[in-house]
Amino acid sequence: MAATSIRPVAIKLNDDVKARVKRLAEARHRTPHWLMREAISQYVDREEKRETFRQDTLKAWDDYRATGLHVTATEADAWLAQLEQLEQGNDIEPPECHV
């Protein structure tokens, strides 16, 4: 396995944001560098999940357009109304897809 390469990257911040990062880092007993790395990491994780969701949505739309299979909002709501059963570990069959 190759070693991870870590290289410095410059980021330009206005004085207000830089001061806010410094104050928050001091309050958390961390360095501004750590705080910015953590913020970027969390942002990238969140945006990757958002992009995956977007791609899944586009695929579902394409599938629907190709097949016409769907469940109605009423059917989905009735299934979700049984959430308590699902939370207790009971399998509740989802509604059947139809055209």
Rank of each mutant, 00 (worst) to 15 (best):
A3H: 03
R20L: 05
A66D: 11
R50I: 12
H98V: 07
E96P: 01
K18G: 00
S41A: 15
T74H: 13
D15A: 12
E87I: 01
V71D: 07
D56Y: 07
A66S: 06
T57C: 12
K22S: 12
A25F: 00
A73E: 13
L24Q: 14
Q88V: 00
P32L: 04
G68W: 02
F53H: 10
T74P: 03
V17N: 01
D62P: 00
Q85Y: 09
V71Q: 07
H98D: 05
R23E: 02
V21I: 15
Q85D: 10
R7E: 14
L83Y: 13
Q42T: 03
A78S: 06
C97V: 15
D16K: 11
Q85V: 04
V17P: 00
I92Y: 11
L80C: 06
E26N: 05
F53G: 02
T57H: 06
L83C: 09
R7I: 14
E47G: 06
R50V: 09
A78L: 10
K12W: 12
Y64W: 14
L69F: 12
T72D: 03
E38C: 09
N14I: 14
V71S: 08
E84F: 02
G89P: 04
W79A: 12
D62Q: 13
R65V: 10
T52Y: 05
G68K: 05
L86I: 11
T4Y: 03
D16L: 09
A2F: 10
E48L: 15
R23T: 00
A60K: 13
P95M: 03
A39G: 09
T31R: 00
E75Y: 06
V99E: 09
S41K: 12
D91P: 04
V9E: 02
D77P: 01
P95C: 03
K59I: 12
K59V: 10
E38N: 10
T72M: 04
A3S: 11
R50S: 14
V44E: 07
E75C: 08
K59W: 08
W79Q: 07
R20E: 03
A73W: 08
N14A: 09
I11R: 01
E51M: 13
D63N: 08
Q85A: 14
A78I: 02
P95H: 01
R30C: 07
P8V: 00
A3D: 12
R7H: 10
T74L: 13
K49D: 15
R65H: 09
P95W: 03
L80W: 08
E48G: 06
Y64V: 05
E75A: 11
K18M: 01
R20Y: 00
A25M: 00
V99C: 09
R28N: 03
Y64C: 02
E87H: 11
A81E: 14
D77Q: 09
L83T: 07
N14T: 15
A27E: 13
Q55P: 01
A66L: 11
D56Q: 14
N14D: 15
K12E: 13
A27F: 00
S5I: 15
Q85W: 07
K22M: 10
V71A: 09
D15K: 04
V9W: 01
D45K: 11
